[in-house]
Simulated assay, not measured.
Amino acid sequence: MVKIGRIRENLPADIVMKGLGKQYPGTATAAVEGVDVTVAAGEVLCIVGASGCGKSTVLRMVAGFEEVTSGTLSVATEPVSGPGPDRGVVFQDYGLFPWLTVAENIAYGPRQARLQRPVVAERTEQALEAVGLTRVSGSFPHQLSGGMQQRVAIARVLANKPSVLLMDEPFGALDALTRVEMQHELQRIQRAAGITVLFVTHSIEEAVYLGDRVMVMAGGTAHGMPGHVREIVDVDLPPDRDASSPEFNAIERHVDGLVHAGHAVRS
Rank of each mutant, 00 (worst) to 15 (best):
Met1Pro: 14
Asp14Leu: 09
Val16Met: 11
Lys18Asn: 12
Pro25Val: 01
Val32Asp: 01
Val37Glu: 09
Ala41Lys: 04
Gly42Met: 11
Val48Glu: 01
Cys53Tyr: 01
Lys55Tyr: 03
Thr57Gly: 01
Met61Gly: 00
Met61Cys: 10
Ala63Gln: 03
Ala63Thr: 05
Phe65Lys: 01
Glu66Val: 07
Thr69Asp: 09
Thr72Val: 10
Ser74Glu: 12
Thr77Gln: 14
Gly82Thr: 06
Gly84Asp: 08
Val90Tyr: 00
Asp93Arg: 11
Tyr94Cys: 02
Leu96Thr: 01
Glu104Gly: 02
Pro110Trp: 03
Arg111Ala: 01
Gln116Met: 15
Glu122Met: 05
Arg123Tyr: 01
Thr124His: 07
Glu125Gln: 15
Ala127Val: 07
Gly138Ala: 06
Gly138Asp: 12
Phe140Gly: 03
His142Pro: 06
Gly146Gln: 05
Gly147Phe: 07
Gly147Cys: 10
Gln149Met: 13
Ile154Arg: 01
Arg156Met: 07
Ala159Trp: 00
Leu166Gln: 02
Met167Thr: 07
Asp168Tyr: 04
Glu169Met: 04
Met182Arg: 11
Ile189Thr: 05
Arg191Leu: 12
Gly194Cys: 07
Ile195Leu: 00
Val197Thr: 10
Thr201Lys: 02
Glu206Asp: 11
Val208Met: 06
Tyr209Ala: 04
Leu210Val: 00
Gly211Gln: 02
Val216Asn: 02
Gly219Glu: 04
Thr221Ser: 11
Ala222Ile: 14
His223Leu: 15
His223Thr: 12
Gly224Cys: 09
Met225Glu: 08
Met225Gly: 12
Pro226Glu: 03
Gly227Met: 07
His228Ile: 12
Val233Tyr: 05
Leu237Lys: 07
Asp240His: 15
Pro246Tyr: 06
Glu247Tyr: 04
Glu247Asp: 13
Phe248Trp: 04
Ala250Met: 08
Gly257Cys: 08
Leu258Ile: 02
Val259Cys: 03
His260Ser: 11
